[in-house]
Nucleic acid binder design. Structure first.
Length: 406
RNA sequence: GGAGGGGUUCCCGAGCGGUCAAAGGGAACAGACUGUAAAUCUGUCGGCGAAGCCUUCGGAGGUUCGAAUCCUCCCCCCUCCA
């Protein structure tokens, strides 16, 4: 194992806080002295089927711990997912059915491996200890916390002040997460800054159960591609690690320019020196687009390979920059009882738009091209023969429309 | 249990008998511009093949020529008292 100082240097990269001050150093020293790796934990609730770049911020930190020879345990929160983490939430989450959680957990595990490969890590589901927990034990756990302390946390305070509902089960969430730390005897728990309360509750509950207290390590929250809110599946501003390369690349290109540097920091392996160079170049007036493309290539490369990254960029340049055609265009075969199918109807019936009205509006806005020619009049837009016709609207919607002969 | 406030279109939020398919903001989509699916500006944003019609303002009834707006009952949320 590396020395305490060397380890701390690596661990400190990108971290916001390590609480309490100095305790991690002590734990590391002890780990080295006794040759016992630390138990490092982060929990993920399978509330949605995909891991996105936001999750990878923590996972990458776990990776570093694994590389340093520590024992990494990923908690799949199959039980906590049924409550929903109130952190950063202004409303109660919908409670998920166990089957849904199960399905999500399965894809989570596959995707964790993708981020962690080839390093080893353990996976525990918190259902292991919660599924069979007796009511008496739940009461015992609940007895370790007071309402006042629970309400200290910002999201509850906000909701309280806004006169928004807070369900009782939501109060249990931090206790459940904390109990995970008791169950696995965590030495370190990782989470985003908004997790600080939950992480510190872990310390409190561990103490109450006579377990050595963990160190709380917080990481920056990754902003979503909209640049407005944290990256989240439910907001839809995310980049999933299992998305197709061109999707990942395109989404990277859509982030606001000011997110380029934070993304390099939080989701790539770039060194601080490399990132500073990029930052300086952009501040000196260099066009950010080349760095954004680099970022897109790097990220695609991490979850696919360099070849896929190149292709994704090529596709982007061809389609978006040069307004050319993508290499795969789906063919939509439709039938019609009319002698001349009306284009807005065809688009709506084949789910290219939500309604014919929406299609008419797109045409009126000058967004729709048929065989390379802008469609100018929605009322007189017809498909006249059974040949495939190239339909384009917006920057990304391409399809061949083919009227099937009946 | 008692008293009061509230539930509006994807989200926030105005409207409080006709001029309401419902202000404003956000998101989203599109156009222009661009070495970006960035920024900026502009437009669109319930459905129906013009007009006009149809379906929406927690749910169900009712009053009225006319209801998001008034009444009744129900459901849900919040506050205060207990």
């Amino acid at each position: 194992m590396l020395s305490v100082d060397k380890q701390m240097e690596i661990i400190r990269e990108n971290t916001v806080e390590i609480l309490p001050e100095g305790e991690l150093e002590k734990k590391l020293a002890k780990a080295i002295a006794t040759n016992t790796p630390l138990v490092v934990k982060q929990g993920f609730d399978p509330t949605a089927p995909d891991i996105h770049l936001g999750h990878t911020v923590g996972l990458r930190k776990l990776r570093q711990f694994a590389e340093l020879g520590h024992r990494v345990i990923v908690i799949v929160g199959d039980y906590t997912a049924q409550v929903g983490d109130p952190s950063g939430r202004s409303a109660t989450r919908p409670q998920l059915a166990i089957e849904e959680v199960e399905a999500n957990a399965t894809t989570y595990l596959q995707q964790f491996s993708k981020v962690m490969a080839p390093l080893k890590f353990e996976v525990r589901r918190n259902g292991e200890w919660f599924a069979g927990m007796s009511f008496a034990n739940i009461l015992r756990l609940a007895g370790k916390m007071t309402l006042a302390r629970m309400l200290e946390r910002e999201d509850f305070t906000k909701r309280w002040k806004a006169e928004a509902p807070i369900s009782i089960h939501e109060l249990l969430y931090p206790l459940m997460q904390a109990y995970d730390s008791v169950a696995i005897k965590a030495d370190v728990e990782i989470g985003a800054t908004e997790q600080k309360f939950n992480l510190l509750t872990g310390r409190q509950i561990q103490e109450a159960y006579g377990v050595e207290q963990q160190v709380a390590l917080t990481l920056p929250v990754l902003e979503g591609i909209d640049g407005l809110q944290r990256m989240s599946k439910s907001i839809g501003n995310y980049i999933g690690v299992s998305e197709p390369p061109r999707e990942i690349f395109g989404k990277v290109m859509s982030i606001p320019d000011r997110l380029i540097v934070p993304y390099f920091q939080l989701v790539t392996n770039y060194t601080q020196a490399q990132i500073e160079k990029i930052d300086a170049a952009m501040k000196a007036g260099e066009n950010p687009v080349s760095y954004k493309k680099e970022l897109g290539r790097v990220i695609v490369g991490m979850y696919y390979d360099a070849q896929a990254a190149k292709e994704a960029q090529g596709e982007f340049e061809r389609v978006v920059v040069e307004k050319g055609l993508p290499d795969e265009i789906p063919t939509v075969v439709f039938t019609s009882s009319e002698s001349n199918p009306w284009l807005p109807r065809v688009m709506a019936d084949n789910n290219l738009t939500t309604s014919s009205g929406a299609a008419i509006r797109l045409i009126d806005a000058g967004a729709v091209y048929l065989d390379g020619k802008r469609v100018s009049n929605a009322k007189e837009a017809y498909i006249v023969d059974h040949e495939p016709h190239l339909l384009k609207f917006g920057k990304r919607s391409f399809s061949y429309l083919k009227w099937r002969i009946e």
